[in-house]
Simulated assay, not measured.
Amino acid sequence: MSNETPTPSRKPRASRDVVVATICGFVVALMVGASYAAVPFYNWFCRATGFGGTTQVAESAPTHITNRSVTVRFDSNIQGGLPWKFVPEQNEINIKIGEVATVYYSVTNQSGDTTTGQASYNVTPLTVGSYFTKINCFCFTEQTLAPREKRDMAVVFYVDPSMLEDSEQNGTNTITLSYTFYPVKNPAPKPVAASEPDKGKKNL
């Protein structure tokens, strides 16, 4: 009688390896997908809640202006080597809550090349983001400047009267609106206007 121990089959182990590899691949794919989905979800969440000082967007002015005033200060920054000079035309204004205000930022391309940038923004205190509302802003689109071009860009905004209903904002007398311009390496192509039909040709 042979004393040799029978060699166990490798098929069960191989099957387990395939299952483990499949599960790992699925988890990695899920994590990658979640990382991409997190960006638009985070942006939506910030806009909806004012989280992190993200301001709100409106198409029209509020229905009434209150008697309480706040000071709004303006800040400007450039990041990533963008060769621009970017400054607010005034450092601060005093407005009533509910009042629509228009302020201007000036930007100059100091280089000899056409460059494109886009601004990110927030307000401080961060909890005011859900009440600080923009009607129009240069930050909504990419800005392309020709060499040495200077441009004045408007921001139209108001502080929503509903802020007065938030007891946490009772001591808020100053709000800082801050912009930071970042370079855009691959700007979105501008649509080309359709050429007019040749007037000398007859319609067939």
Rank of each mutant, 00 (worst) to 15 (best):
F26S: 13
F26G: 13
F26I: 15
V27C: 12
V27W: 05
V27K: 03
V27A: 14
V28C: 12
V28F: 14
A29L: 15
A29T: 10
L30I: 03
M31N: 13
M31R: 08
V32I: 14
V32D: 07
V32K: 00
V32M: 06
G33E: 06
G33A: 03
G33Y: 02
A34T: 09
A34W: 10
A34D: 14
A34L: 15
S35W: 06
S35T: 15
S35I: 11
S35Y: 07
S35V: 13
Y36V: 15
Y36E: 15
Y36D: 13
Y36R: 13
A37Y: 09
A37H: 02
A38D: 10
A38N: 08
V39D: 14
V39A: 07
V39Y: 06
V39F: 04
V39L: 11
P40A: 09
P40I: 04
P40C: 10
F41N: 09
F41I: 10
Y42F: 11
Y42G: 05
Y42D: 15
Y42T: 12
N43S: 08
N43R: 11
N43D: 11
W44A: 13
W44D: 11
F45Q: 12
F45R: 08
F45Y: 15
F45H: 14
C46D: 09
R47E: 10
R47M: 01
R47C: 00
A48F: 04
A48I: 05
A48Y: 02
A48T: 14
T49F: 00
T49W: 03
G50L: 01
G50W: 01
G52N: 11
G52Y: 02
G52T: 05
G52Q: 08
G52D: 11
G52H: 08
G52A: 05
G53A: 06
T55W: 04
T55Y: 07
Q56I: 01
Q56C: 04
V57N: 06
A58Q: 00
A58K: 04
A58R: 07
A58F: 00
E59Q: 13
E59S: 15
E59I: 10
S60A: 06
S60G: 03
S60D: 02
A61H: 01
A61P: 01
A61I: 05
A61V: 03
A61M: 03
P62Q: 02
P62I: 04
P62G: 05
P62S: 05
P62Y: 02
P62R: 03
T63I: 00
T63K: 08
T63V: 06
T63R: 05
H64M: 01
H64G: 01
I65P: 08
T66E: 05
T66P: 02
T66I: 03
N67H: 08
N67T: 13
N67W: 02
N67F: 00
N67Y: 10
N67L: 12
R68M: 05
R68P: 02
S69D: 09
S69K: 15
S69T: 15
S69F: 07
S69C: 07
S69P: 00
V70M: 05
V70W: 00
T71Y: 00
T71W: 00
V72R: 02
R73S: 14
R73N: 12
R73D: 12
F74S: 09
F74A: 04
F74W: 08
F74H: 07
F74D: 04
F74V: 11
